[in-house]
C-alpha cells in the first residue's frame, strides 16, 4: 500500500519547521517517528499534502531529571524509555508497546499528539498528571494531561502547534503496575490499566492514580476506584472492592475484539491486577 502523494521537508530548526507547517495550510502534518501517521497514510485514511519531518530539529530527544520531574524530549523513542529503567512505570509501559521494531521508531510526542485512547503512553501520561509543551508560531505554552485529550484522536494541540517536551512528575515512593489484555502479543490492548499507589507508613493508601486505555474516546481515570481505595488499608480485599468500581461511569465503545460488557469486565480485572502489582 502506497500513501497518496505529498510534499516533504526536513527543516534544521524548530522555527523553520513551525513556519513550514503554518505555510503548508490545514493539510500539512508534522512527522515524528511516523508509526501512527504512516499506517493511516498507507490506508489512505490520512492524506496530508505536506509532511514536515522533525528528525533534523536539534534538542527534541532525551530524558533529563529536573526539579522533581522527568523532562522527556518529544522525539524520544519508545526504546529509549524502555531502556531508562529509572523512569519506573513509564519505562515499563513503554516496554509493552507493540514490538521492538515499533519501539525503535515510535516517539512519545508522536504518540501523545495522535491521541489514541488505545495507546499505552497516553494513559501513563494521564495517570502521572504530566504536562507537555506545545510550541506554535506564537511560542511555547504548557498543557496539562487532564486538559490535553479532548475526544477520539483529538487533542488540545492547535493545527500549527507541535509537542516539544513532555514532563512527568517523579512520584517518589509510588509503586506501580501496568496490565494490558491483548488478543495477540503486539496488539493494542482491549483494555490496559496503569496504577500508581503511594502507601502511607501505617499501610493505608495515601494516594492512588488509575488510568485506563480503550474505555472511552480518550484515556480515562478510574475515579470511583481511586476514591474507594484512598485512605483504606491496602490488602487483597480493599483492592478487589476498589477494582470493582473501575468501569463506573464509563461508556466504552465495543470493537471487533471486545463488547462493551467485556471491556467493563476487563477494566475491573486489569485494575485489580495492576493495583496488586503496585502494592507489592
Amino acid at each position: 500500500m502506497i500513501p497518496a502523494e505529498f510534499d516533504y521537508v526536513a527543516p534544521d530548526t524548530l522555527q523553520e519547521a513551525i513556519a513550514a507547517r503554518t505555510a503548508g495550510g490545514e493539510d500539512a502534518k508534522f512527522l515524528a517517528g511516523g508509526h501512527s501517521l504512516l499506517p493511516l497514510m498507507k490506508l489512505r485514511l490520512a492524506a496530508p499534502t505536506l509532511l514536515v519531518d522533525l528528525r533534523k530539529v536539534p534538542g527534541l530527544s532525551g530524558v533529563t531529571r529536573e526539579n522533581g520531574h522527568w523532562r522527556i524530549g518529544a522525539m524520544t523513542r519508545h526504546a529509549v524509555l524502555q531502556d531508562s529503567h529509572e523512569l519506573g512505570a513509564i519505562s515499563t509501559v513503554a516496554a509493552g508497546i507493540a514490538d521492538q521494531q515499533i519501539r525503535n521508531r515510535g516517539t512519545i510526542g508522536g504518540s501523545l499528539a495522535h491521541g489514541d485512547p488505545a495507546s499505552d503512553l497516553t494513559t501513563a501520561f494521564l495517570a502521572y498528571e504530566g504536562t507537555l509543551t506545545a510550541t506554535g508560531p506564537d511560542g511555547p505554552r504548557e498543557v496539562a494531561a487532564t486538559e490535553f485529550f479532548q475526544d477520539y484522536l483529538t487533542t488540545a494541540l492547535a493545527e500549527d502547534e507541535v509537542i516539544t517536551e513532555v514532563r512527568m512528575p517523579r512520584l517518589e515512593g509510588y509503586g506501580y503496575g501496568y496490565e494490558k489484555f491483548t488478543r495477540r502479543a503486539e496488539d493494542w490492548a482491549m483494555v490496559g490499566v496503569v496504577a500508581l499507589v503511594k502507601q502511607a507508613d501505617d499501610g493505608t493508601c495515601e494516594d492512588v492514580r488509575i488510568a485506563m486505555t480503550n474505555m472511552g474516546s480518550t484515556p480515562l481515570r478510574a475515579r470511583a476506584a481511586e476514591d474507594a481505595l484512598r485512605g483504606r488499608p491496602l490488602d487483597a480485599g480493599s483492592i478487589a472492592e476498589a477494582a470493582g468500581h473501575a468501569a463506573d461511569g464509563t461508556d466504552p465503545p465495543a470493537d471487533r475484539n471486545a463488547s462493551e460488557a467485556y471491556k467493563r469486565h476487563l477494566a475491573q480485572v486489569m485494575t485489580r491486577r495492576a493495583l496488586t502489582s503496585a502494592t507489592k
Partner: peptide
C-alpha cells in the same frame, strides 16, 4: 501494515519495519 515483520531491516543499528518507514 507493520504487523508481520517480514520487511524488518536495521536502521542505524536498530531493527525497524521498512514498510512503515519512508525512504526519505
Amino acid at each position: 501494515t507493520s504487523n508481520c515483520g517480514a520487511c524488518t531491516v536495521q536502521l542505524d543499528g536498530q531493527s525497524c519495519k521498512s514498510c512503515t518507514v519512508l525512504a526519505v
